[in-house]
Structures are given as C-alpha cells and as structure tokens.
C-alpha cells in the first residue's frame, strides 16, 4: 500500500514578522522580554533576554506601559508582582512549569504546619500563591547566600527543587534544611549517566552544569573520583553560565541545561563551541511561545496576567527580602 501525502510544513516566521512585532510593540508602548530558554527567533526579536528575575527587574524599571513576557507563566506572574501598575501579557497562558507544578499552596501550608517556626525559602519557580506563603525567595545564583542569611538555628523549608536544594545543602553544609522533592521535567532528564556519556565522548571539553540538573551531584562525584579536572566543571546558574561563556578560552563547552540557553552562550562567545549534554533537554512549555503567538499577543492584547492584590503584596515582600539580602542577581530561572 502506498498513499501520497503532503503535509504543511511547520511554519518559520513569515518575512517581515520581526518588523511587524517591533512595530506593534512600539504602537502599544510594550517592552518584549524573552527568557534564555525561548526559541532563537523570539530571543532575537526581544528587547531584553535573560533569566526570569533579571527580566522581572527590567520589567519593573522599564518606562513602558505594557510588558510582553515570552517565558512561562510564573515568570510573567513575577513580573506582574514587581510591576503591579503595568499590564503584563504572555503569548500563551498555558505555558506552565513542571517544577512550579510540584507544589501547591495547600501542600506548602501543610508542610509549614508540621514545622512551626521554620523559615520558608522559595525558588523563583513557584506560583504567586506559593511565594505569598514563603518568607524569602531565591534564584539559582543566590540560593546559598539566601540560606546563609538565615540564623543557623532556624530550620529551613527549601522548595520546590530537590537538586538545587541538595546543591545548597552541599555548599552551605546546613543540616536543618528540609528540601521539597520537586524536579523539573527537563533537568531531571540530564542524569549522571547522561553527563558521564557526554564527558566520555569528549574528554577535553569543559562542562557547565545548572544546579537544577539531576547530574549535579554526579558532576561533583566525577571531580572527586578524578574523572574530570575540577577547573573544567562549573555548577552555576544561567547567568553564571553567560559570565563563563564570555571569559572562557575553551575550544568546546558541554552545557547541561535547557538547550535554548545555547543561543545566548553562542552569541556571547562565537569562538567557543557550545554543545548540549542532552539534546532532549527541551522545555516544551517554553516552546509554546511561538512566533505566531507572539504576534497574536501583540495584535489582540492577550493573554493578560492578573494576580490577586493581596497575594501579590505578600509575594512581593518575599521577593524584596531576597533583593535586600544584597547578593547581585546575575542569574535565576
């Protein structure tokens, strides 16, 4: 049996798409922000590209009336929390986050009730409701500093990422730190075996590992076992990865995080080859923001993000407490 079939190709952006996006943004007085894990064409059309917290801070300080956030839902929510007077749009409100989904505010309330007096440290990958129930937020770059700023005899509930939590525990040596068992669908897939295979395939390459990765512990073990020289491995946030990319002289760098990050790293340093540890590390929620949806978002003014003002105020406190701790925010998810 054989049947001829012709299907429509998945459309690349139409010619003039970028110009039209920029024209509409200007007409709306909107600033376009894109996360590091967005599609390359979205990153290229945006006014600013970065990690979620850096983008939220840009959002708060930008003079525009509107923010179009190309990222996942909690990121746009965080931007709204920090700029309550502005209209915040996301091109697809269905772009969730598998990590933020692992803790519901009711679950957090239960956890807190079982540990009265504990301080709650929430990674920025959480819903506004969860942030509002937390004492202080953190990013992957300042999580250890935030934890260290809490009195040593205070128990800490750290959420929701188990791998980042383990990393913080290692760095701070803190024993009274309890970690929520969440993980991100993308980073959980970059396990120790995947990292070992990638390093074995190119034993001379440098390695950058995001602390959310399931392989972060294995990376340290590899160093300890002499499997790879310590100076060739860095466990760092996406912001830290960019700093590394700018200064590295390595021929090739293996990157363990979402593959969208490669676009920024390559732009930062065209002389080094950046390759993914796993080419399956693609966040589907990030990729729900397509060129067509961005255009539709600007044309139709959707999807608008709203956050209950009471929740927003409490969540804002948690974020501002983090900023007050004073660590420069170079990277966050």
């Amino acid at each position: 049996m054989g049947i001829e079939t012709v299907g429509p190709p998945s459309a690349p952006p139409a010619p003039g798409w970028a110009d039209e996006v920029r024209r509409l943004a200007k007409a709306r007085d909107a600033v376009i922000l894109a996360h590091n894990y967005q599609l390359p064409e979205i990153q290229d059309v945006a006014d600013h590209v970065g990690d979620s917290l850096a983008l939220s801070r840009i959002a708060a300080s930008a003079p525009h009336r509107e923010i179009v956030f190309c990222g996942v839902h909690f990121m746009a929510e965080t931007a709204k929390i920090l700029s309550p007077g502005k209209r915040v749009l996301i091109p697809d409100a269905g772009a969730g986050c598998s990590l933020a989904d692992t803790i519901h505010v009711e679950e957090l309330r239960t956890w807190k009730a079982a540990h009265p007096g504990a301080a709650v440290v929430a990674y920025v990958n959480t819903s506004a409701a969860v942030k509002a129930e937390s004492d202080v937020c953190c990013t992957s770059s300042n999580a250890a500093d935030v934890v260290a700023s809490i009195p040593a005899d205070t128990e800490i509930l750290f959420l929701p990422d188990r791998h980042l939590g383990a990393h913080v525990q290692r760095v701070t040596g803190r024993e009274n730190l309890r970690v929520w068992p969440g993980q991100c669908h993308v980073h959980e897939g970059i396990g120790g075996d995947v990292l070992r295979d990638a390093i074995a395939a190119d034993p001379t390459a440098d390695v950058l590992v995001h602390p959310e990765c399931a392989c972060a512990t294995s990376a340290l073990r590899l160093v300890a076992d002499g499997g790879i020289a310590p100076e060739r491995v860095r466990i760092t946030s996406t912001g830290g990865m960019l700093d590394e990319a700018r200064r590295t002289g390595a021929r090739r760098v293996l990157v363990a995080t979402e593959t969208g990050m490669l676009h920024q790293l390559r732009r930062a340093n065209p002389g080094t080859e950046f390759a993914p540890v796993s080419d399956r590390a693609v966040c589907p929620y990030m990729k729900m923001i397509t060129p067509e949806k961005l255009l539709a978002s600007l044309r139709e003014g959707r999807d608008e993000i709203t956050v209950d003002e009471g929740i927003a105020a409490l969540a804002r406190d948690a974020v501002e407490r983090m900023i007050a701790i004073g660590s420069p925010v170079a990277g966050a998810e």
Binding site: G2, I3, E4, P8, S10, G96, H185, P284
Partner: peptide, 23 residues
C-alpha cells in the same frame, strides 16, 4: 500530561516531508 506538554511545546514531528507512507 507529560506527552501533552511535549506535543504542545514543539515536540510534534513536522510533516513537511513529501513521500509515501506504507504499512
């Protein structure tokens, strides 16, 4: 749930290729 996310977020294979499909 995981597959829905994958298909919605660009995981759907393209269908640009012209050609015969066969059992």
């Amino acid at each position: 749930h995981r597959l829905a996310g994958f298909l919605r977020g660009g995981g759907l294979p393209g269908s640009a290729a012209r050609g015969r499909v066969t059992a």
